[in-house]
Amino acid sequence: MSEQMIRVNKLNKSFGDLHVLKDIDFHVEESEVVVLIGASGSGKSTMLRCLNFLEMKNSGELFIKGKQIDPKRDNLNKVRQQVGMVFQHFNLFPHMTVLGNVMEAPTQVKGIAKSQAKKEGQELLEKVGLGDKANDYPSRLSGGQKQRVAIARALAMKPEIMLFDEPTSALDPELVGEVLATMKDLAKEGMTMVVVTHEMGFAREVADRVVYMHDGKIVESGAPKDLFENPQEERTQAFLSSIL
């Protein structure tokens, strides 16, 4: 049986009076690609950010690889090394070269030798098709290239789980494809992925499971074929008909 990479029980999160996540139960198996869909404000990004503790839950349990994580007791920096994250706005470090971005965490956090980090970083950049950009600064890259560097930067820590927070939402339409292609390759290699996106084509083609969220709750989840073609809940039907 494959290992459960993420398990969330009765997760609640509020921002002040705003109750954003309501008793969420959620899990991700090893090598599974889960796509979170839902209208903006439904809580999908907040949920993703709770998974690597960029947001702190108010209540509930969170397990990473079977181990319950307590933010007060556990070293979150260690936890985050296993959980890579890609942001909507890339958040590349503008004062470092492309290769410098990719090498930063392995050398500074893991203490890996510069020569080795450089070699591995270059390989990762080749993998996302940007080997020739290693010595450029991020300001010289297109949005799609920036996002692919961000993916390589996260992969450099050799995470076991990758979180994607609307990775193509800030891109010009013609640049979306290259980022999705990189993500597809990653899924094929067996990476465990949780993806918040509005790209229904990607969800249909790559996801093992699609989760529809509305108003801080998971309304429905299932294989993409089932969920897209035969949604059970009225809310899901309404959402899908509004976007497809």
Binding site: N52, L54, N77, K78, R80, Q81, V83, G84, M85, F87, H89, N91, L92, F93, P94, H95, E104, A105, Q108, V109, A150, R153, A154, M157
Partner: peptide, 26 residues
């Protein structure tokens, strides 16, 4: 921007390391 600190932290960098390597140089 807040995103810079978040990017650092999401890579497993400590708050101090993120300040020293990511925020302060900028």
């Amino acid at each position: 921007g807040k995103g810079q600190a978040e990017a650092g932290r999401s890579l497993g960098m400590s708050g101090t390391l993120t300040m020293r390597r990511i925020i302060l140089p900028q």
